[in-house]
Design a protein around this nucleic acid. Structure first.
Length: 803
RNA sequence: GCCGGUGUGGUGGAAUGGCAGACACUACGGACUUAAAAUCCGUUGUCCGAAAGGACGUGCGGGUUCGACCCCCGCCACCGGCACCA
């Protein structure tokens, strides 16, 4: 019979509000376990059906840990600063603060409706001044250590958000958030020196238990490459420095290329015979968006500098210098040595400009294409390197360069410093003051937080300045150092700031004197298990690891790494496997599912839908199956089972299920854990279960469907709460059946099955197999030449015709 | 182009060297019902066959093995990430 989920879920959610079974106690004697989900951005649309998937998964693990005797911290909060709220506020003439408050209230009621076991007393909101005080405080510590700095440089500018973007926020040349084109703009920006941590961010990945593809993506994004920097003399007298990973190919250099933004160009401009053409090319490059630059990637363009040439240090040859936008200003030194024989981009360029191509590594045909697959091979046309294999040649060249003082070993990273200013209202004010006399001066720590002022309008300005800049009363202030007239910084922090350390605040969320007490941090950190989306691998995950390492260096946190373990979930797609979106009209609202089937069914279905790591398509039909399963369990409970012990008829199945469910939860194979419980329930329908059988089933099911399980627990007259019971243990010996069905094969082909006692001797199994009628028939007129027995699984009889 | 992943019934998916398709959805049949829904029981990879039975079957082509969805080599398709990174 269908159970009354509406009444039951309301009842137990009320009881949990009272009893607070999810409260974490700092400093408890039990072993601690800290499970973390990525806290949501409280959007106006409310909870999406994609949210419950990772939340339910970690909730199940957290509930299992509690039953295993751990002191569990499983917190929740809101990452509430950000553009959508600000844009909504502008459109609807509301204050972002009010929009946020409303959305947070809505999210909270939805999350409670789903029965997640969060410790609500530790709730955190990044827009709360008592929280962002510490976000600002961390920024000031970075400033003190020289990791925060102001720099004028070309930055990514979103034409629609009217705001700069971090490198990580530009996806295929467009804004990650709104999809508008991104252009390059010179702006003075606050930067965080994440590159200072590049090597440690790579190295310490070895110490953490992250799924491999997350580690790989982080390593690729940081993009370490080993090589050398080499100085080329020029006819202008200046040295031109380049970075190369292939210094062994120096004899193959036939020209040089600089990025159009290279600093030496300004100096050289007066001596260039074709200064106009060079300038024109620079202008054209500056006006290209990121998208255009990548779209035009095939055709190589450039301009030769007439009047300046470079000199190859290995042979003294004079070679031409070009500017081209295929060389990036932001990587390496912004200039390269071109080896057209062994680099396909250089080869394309050399062909376009009719430049000589020299083979320096044997193995390819450089007249037809660049021979780039040349990590092994032998050097030719290369003076003192001739005949050496590539690796040795590299080492010899580096030694030679260092000896002559024209170059040195060097490691480069693709990772760039983090552009940390945003020209928007709804973010943490950057706590800095610009004084005409003293320069940039930090706001004294005792004056934190620097509160966001009330403003008339949140509209971004077309001049690219923050809306805060119009608040002249707020902007004007006294210099904390000299007391003179000064101005506040009007840019705010990006959304990633608040989320870079929120997991630390959870350990001690109401602390007014520190971001968290050392005791709380020592007790709870690191996070034992963090689950989140792959889309945050190069943004949030990298940023928060960086902040954490910094906090470790200044003695604030006790661990080098914030998260001991990181897993990832797949997206929930709409019916038929397409992305859920408003425009397709296939968005499933959790409220509707809960109204129709109840929270326990939604929880169960999102776990049963498929492999947790992979994307899965929503199916309304399939949801019913999970409801049916809960109804079937309910009917078993209503039937009033008797007998306190696990019944002999179900003993093996019960122990097998305990084992399967226990192991599967650890591996996040929730779908097969649920399948195992379904199988057990199917058994219970064939043979009536005892009360003892039901007791085990309810304990196993409790983390998945907590409301209905508590109701049944109570109904069956058990003591206390199901969720507070000890997690069931299995006896390995009892998971083994008495009899086993063996597959019988003849020459590897399945003929039938025989049932034998578990663990019986091989001869017994073979004898039984040979007696199997179909096998016997297949063996007529044959000699058995070999028998293969896999214990408790199969017998394979290898036969061949009798002579 | 590079890196990573995936490919299994009508559908979602199980099985990481040992009976392919667990579990569930759909569909069909039966019981209950005046009837329907719900529920319970059963069937449900494809093809041939009345049946007994047989043949085929995990993207494609090879290989290793007594035995391959699983391991190896070569392709194809799709998904995700990165992409002129010197």
């Amino acid at each position: 019979m269908a159970y009354d989920f509406e009444r039951i879920e309301k009842k137990w959610q009320g009881i949990w509000e009272q009893e607070k079974p999810y409260a974490a106690k700092t400093g408890d004697d039990r072993p601690k376990w800290y499970g973390l989900i990525e806290f949501p951005y409280p959007s106006g649309q409310g909870l999406h059906v994609g949210h419950p998937r990772p939340y339910t998964a970690m909730d199940i693990i957290a509930r299992k840990r509690r039953m295993q005797g751990y002191n569990v911290l499983f917190p929740i909060g809101y990452d509430a600063f950000g553009l959508p709220t600000e844009n909504y506020a502008i459109k609807n003439h509301m204050h972002p603060h009010d929009v946020t408050r409303r959305n947070v209230a809505n999210f909270t009621s939805q999350l409670k409706m789903l029965g997640f076991g969060f410790d609500w007393d530790r709730m955190v909101d990044t827009t709360d001044p008592t929280y962002y005080k510490w976000t600002q405080w961390i920024f000031l510590q970075m400033w003190k250590k020289g990791l925060a700095y102001k720099a004028t440089m070309p930055v990514n500018w979103c034409t629609s958000c009217k705001c700069v973007l971090a490198n990580e926020e530009v996806v295929e040349g467009v804004c990650e958030r709104c999809g508008s084109p991104v252009i390059q703009k010179e702006k003075s920006q606050w930067m965080l020196r994440i590159t200072a941590y590049a090597q440690r961010l790579i190295d310490d990945l070895d110490e953490v238990d992250y799924i491999e593809r997350v580690k790989i993506q982080q390593r690729n994004w940081i993009g370490r490459s080993e090589g050398a920097e080499v100085d080329f003399d020029t006819t202008a007298g200046d040295k031109m420095r380049i970075f190369t990973t292939r210094c062994d190919t120096l004899f193959g250099v036939t020209y040089m290329v600089m990025s159009p933004e290279h600093a030496l160009l300004t100096k050289w401009m007066p001596m260039l015979k074709n200064a106009d053409a060079v300038k024109a090319y620079q202008d054209a490059a500056a006006h290209k968006s990121e998208l255009e630059r990548t779209e035009l990637s095939k055709e190589k363009t450039g301009v030769r500098l007439e009047g300046v040439a470079a000199i190859n240090p290995v042979n003294g040859q004079e070679i031409p210098i070009f500017i081209s936008d295929y060389v990036l200003a932001t990587y390496g030194t912004g200039a390269i040595m071109a080896v057209p024989g062994h680099d396909s981009r250089d080869w394309d360029f050399a062909r376009a400009f009719d430049l000589p191509i020299i083979e320096v590594v044997k193995g390819g045909n450089v007249d037809e294409a660049a021979y780039t697959d040349c990590e092994t091979g032998e050097l030719v046309n290369s003076g003192f390197l001739n005949g050496l294999p590539v690796e040795e040649a590299k080492e010899k060249m580096i030694a030679w360069l260092e000896e002559k003082g024209v170059g040195e070993r060097k490691v480069n990273y693709k990772l760039r410093d983090w552009v940390f200013s945003r020209q928007r209202y709804w973010g943490e004010p950057i706590p800095m003051v610009n004084c005409p006399k003293c320069g940039w001066v930090p706001v004294p720590e005792e004056e934190l937080p620097v509160l966001l002022p009330e403003v008339e309008s949140y509209e971004p300005t077309d001049t690219g300045e923050s809306p805060l800049s119009k608040m002249t009363d707020w902007v004007r202030c006294k210099c904390p150092k000299c007391g003179g007239e000064a101005q506040r910084e009007t840019d705010t922090m990006p959304q990633w700031a608040g989320s870079s350390w929120y997991f630390l605040r959870y350990t001690d969320p109401h602390n007014a004197d520190a971001l968290a007490s050392p005791e709380a941090l020592k007790y709870w950190t690191p996070v034992d298990w963090y689950n989140g989306g792959m889309e945050h691998t190069t943004l949030h995950l990298l940023y928060s690891r960086f902040w954490h390492k910094f906090l470790y260096d200044i003695g604030v946190v006790p661990t080098k790494e914030p998260y001991a373990k990181r897993t990832s979930h797949g997206m929930i797609l709409g019916e038929g496997g397409v992305k859920m979106s408003k425009s397709r009209g296939n968005v499933v609202n959790p409220n509707d599912v809960v109204a129709k089937y109840g929270a326990d069914t939604l929880r169960l279905y999102t776990m049963f839908i498929g492999d947790f790591e992979k994307a899965a398509a929503w199916s309304d039909e399939a949801v019913k199956g999970c409801k049916k399963f809960l109804d079937r369990v309910w009917a078993l409970a209503e039937a009033g089972p008797t007998g306190d012990e696990v019944s002999p008829a179900h003993e093996t199945a019960v122990h097998q299920t305990i084992k399967k469910v226990s192991q599967d939860i650890e591996e996040m194979k929730f779908n097969t854990a649920i399948a195992a419980m379904m199988t057990l329930v199917n058994d219970f329908y064939k043979t009536k279960p005892s009360l003892g059988d039901m007791e085990v089933l309810l304990k196993l099911l409790s983390p998945f469907a907590p409301h209905v399980v508590e109701e049944m627990w109570e109904m069956l007259g058990f003591e206390g709460r199901a969720m507070a019971q000890k997690w069931p243990e299995y006896d390995e010996a009892k998971t083994v059946e008495q009899m086993k069905e063996l597959a019988v094969q003849v020459n590897g082909k399945l003929k039938g099955t025989v049932t034998v006692p578990t663990g019986c001797p091989d001869q017994v199994a073979v004898a039984a197999a040979m007696a199997e009628p179909k096998a016997a028939r297949a063996m007529e007129g044959m000699d058995v030449v070999k028998t293969i027995v896999v214990k408790d699984r199969l017998v394979n009889l290898i036969v061949k015709p009798k002579k």
